[in-house]
Design a protein around this nucleic acid. Structure first.
Lengths: 147, 147
DNA sequence: TTGTATTTTAGAACTATTCTGACTTAAGAG
DNA sequence: CTCTTAAGTCAGAATAGTTCTAAAATACAA
């Protein structure tokens, strides 16, 4: 989670053949500087909080462009909710089914999961574990008490 | 994947406090008798192929009722596509990114995945692995040939 | 600078899902 | 069986998330 400078962000965009517009930059920068996985709605509100930066349509366009070059990806964990993530390295997700909190699980947490346990004929090239459970804030004070 | 008799299906519905209507029965029966995970659209078409059985609204209603009592669950693997699955036992999914084919991976395929590799504070109670790759039909004849 | 292909944008259009409200029905009680 | 009624069905309206349109603005190579 090293913070990138503006120049580095611009460099990345150009490296992938994208023109650097203020809107596109803002969307990507915002995604890079957060650990959660915001929805379009959240991006729209936050980017335009201190004055207008980007329209909704442009956020959709920017995300699509960023996605096409592989700088951003979607995260699908809840019904009808599409989230975006600038961490395109393989990693897993944890979702608290009490408060909805979502966080990354490092790739190394689960090792050797998909060795060769698949049926013959299937050729895997990527996998991802989604863990559902309860996060810190949603846990009862004394876990050993039966309720 | 043992096929259930009509009586067994009715029994299950009643057991979960659901009235047995022709539409609800048809939706659940259809889901039970297939291994893929259809969308509402697919259900609508197939159920009404040999004469009208259920309206779209009722399919949504039925799926919601079935979901509320835990007989059916959603499968979210692609953007904007919600699929339904009558296999509510924990299992994993494989998705071919070439043809979109989706199939179940038995629960036992990956064991001990989420032992205690999570950071302290997170309490897992369920997890699921999604494997992306290429299925039989989408593989080149001679895999060792570089293309 | 300038020229041009790309991008932005408001609003229209589209699509998946839920809601509404009148009609119908499953199934327990008598 | 028949009655009763809470629950279910359904067409069409409403809503929400996303994409499209086409006109104005702009990044950036020359």
């Amino acid at each position: 989670m090293t913070t990138l400078s503006a120049n580095e962000i611009v460099g990345r965009l150009k490296l992938h053949g994208l023109r650097v517009t203020p809107q596109r930059f803002a969307v990507y920068e915002n995604l890079l500087n957060r650990i959660d996985h915001p929805t379009v709605e959240q991006l729209l509100v936050e980017l335009n909080q201190a004055g207008p930066v980007s329209s909704q349509a442009t956020i959709y366009n920017s995300l699509q462009a960023l996605r096409e070059v592989g700088l951003v990806r979607q995260v699908l964990l809840e019904e009808g909710v599409v989230r975006y993530d600038a961490n395109v390295d393989p990693h897993h997700h944890f979702r608290c089914h009490s408060c909805g909190h979502i966080e990354d699980i490092p790739w190394e947490a689960f090792h050797e999961v998909v060795q060769s346990s698949l049926r013959p004929g299937l050729r895997p090239d990527r996998y991802e574990v989604t863990v559902m459970g309860t996060c810190d804030r949603c846990q009862p004070p004394e876990p050993q008490d039966a309720v």
